[in-house]
Design a protein around this nucleic acid. Structure first.
Length: 439
DNA sequence: ATGTCC
């Protein structure tokens, strides 16, 4: 018996949300869950998969990755592609934290070398990397400068001394989407964003010092410069108040647009506009600006991480060899080409809590990864392991080149806080040798 | 995710 009435199991890893689950579905939904994860499925998130299938111009199926949970309009873990000529774009399909994403750094240090200094290292990282709700950083930008960040993304950061050009190669889209328009972003967004560049944020955003515990594919690990017991750093952050404000502004805008273009919405949170309409293009340009801000943000966070490591371990930059393995966006909409029913089509792929996972040979991959596929970074939950994977052709065939984005969420934030009441999580982690600092 | 309610 399926957990959610009306859904059907296709195979051990997929369930179907048939047309008719909600009225007006143009295609079926597919959710990638095994029988264990199926037990955690929320009715609301399944309904959201079905609702997305009603939107104009949807191409292929309305998809959800294994870490699916209920989000704003679209489910988190949702992947949906819309025809670039006939389809829509929706802020709800990207999420409030535009270009929330993960960056993995490697070093030349080993676990044995870092362990004795982990307390000092973590303390200094905490001092130099601002975090928490509303946190501001060491970078103060005026509007003109922030507009440059909007246009140039991580390139802006490198040009201003935060890292070097080599870092840019191993960032999705090289850390900059062309076509970001600073003029379609509100004054309010600029106000919120101008002092927040180079800040981590809150919630599940983190900076974690890790080590390579196990290598499953030696050749792939080698191509990424990863080896057993090597110390790595994972950074999970996004576009802070800047992207949040842009999403907020455009959800309102798109509600009007949906009305104007006669788009029937099963849920107001699916507010959208035709991709080619001026409203659709305006959101897309603003979203690109927020995505670029997020890439500049992670670039700055990485730069200070590198500086802290250099100080604590008193080594030269060459000896430390702290380099980007890869940086992925997991909340974004992108114009891409995909083969659907044998035909190559230009589509707008919405990935909301889903990671791009392009296979070997894809033209968007940097040379160093051309023969192994795109690195995919999947953070685990606190105190557990994270994963580095590569995209395969199967992802291209089934999910528009996408996979899951993290550990998922079994409890809402408030539920989790309530359930954890009385627990000393910091001490629990300390007993397992994990040093944790949180604002 | 988020100046966790304009």
């Amino acid at each position: 018996m399926p957990k959610i009435e009306g859904t059907e199991r296709i195979d051990p890893y997929r369930i179907r949300v048939p047309k008719g689950f909600v009225q007006g579905m143009k295609t079926e939904g597919i959710i990638f869950v095994d029988e264990i994860l199926e037990q955690e499925l929320e009715f609301d998130s399944v309904k959201q998969v079905a609702n997305v299938a009603t939107l104009p111009g949807i191409v292929g199926k309305s998809l959800a990755m294994p870490d699916i949970h209920t989000g704003y309009g679209f489910p988190i873990g949702g992947v949906a592609a819309f025809d670039a000529e006939q389809g829509i774009i929706s802020p709800g399909g990207v999420g409030y934290d535009i270009n929330c994403g993960v960056r993995l750094l490697k070093s030349n240090l080993t676990k044995d070398e870092v362990e004795p200094k982990i307390r000092e290292l973590v303390d200094l990282l905490y001092t130099h990397i601002p975090s928490g709700v509303g946190s501001t950083g060491k970078i103060r930008l005026n509007y003109e400068e922030l507009k440059k960040v909007v246009r140039k993304g991580a390139i802006w950061a490198v040009e201003h001394g935060y890292g070097d050009a080599d870092d840019l190669k191993r960032i999705e889209s090289h850390g900059c989407l062309d076509g970001a328009d600073p003029e379609v972003i509100s004054k309010k967004a600029y106000e919120r964003g101008k002092d927040q560049l180079g800040t981590l944020g809150s919630g599940n955003h983190f900076l974690e010092v890790q080590y390579v515990d196990e290598v499953y594919e030696p050749e792939i690990a080698q191509a990424m410069g990863l080896f057993k017991n090597q110390v790595t750093v994972m950074i999970h952050s996004g576009s802070r108040g800047f992207g949040h404000q842009i999403c907020d502004d455009y959800v309102r805008d798109m509600l009007q647009a949906a009305k104007k273009y006669g788009i029937e919405l099963p849920d107001r949170e699916l507010a959208c506009a035709p991709f080619l309409s001026k409203e659709g293009q305006r959101y897309f340009s603003a979203m690109k600006g927020a995505a670029n801000y997020a890439w500049a943000n992670r670039q700055c966070l990485m730069h200070w991480t590198r500086e802290v490591f250099l100080r604590v371990f008193k080594v030269s930059p060459k000896e430390l060899a702290m380099r980007v393995v890869y940086d992925v966006a997991h909340n974004i909409a992108k114009e891409e080409f995909h083969i659907i029913n044998g035909k190559r089509r230009r589509v707008v792929v919405h990935r909301k809590g889903a990671t791009r996972a392009f296979p070997e040979g894809h033209p968007e991959l940097p040379d160093c990864y051309a023969s192994i596929g795109q690195p995919v970074i999947i953070p685990g939950d606190m105190g557990r392991v994270s994963f580095v994977l590569v995209g395969l052709q199967r992802a291209m065939d089934e999910t528009f080149g996408s996979t899951c984005h993290g550990a998922g969420r079994l409890l809402s934030r408030t539920q989790a806080i309530k359930q954890a009441k009385g627990r000393a999580i910091k001490e629990e982690l300390a007993q397992r040798g994990i040093v944790k600092i949180c604002w």
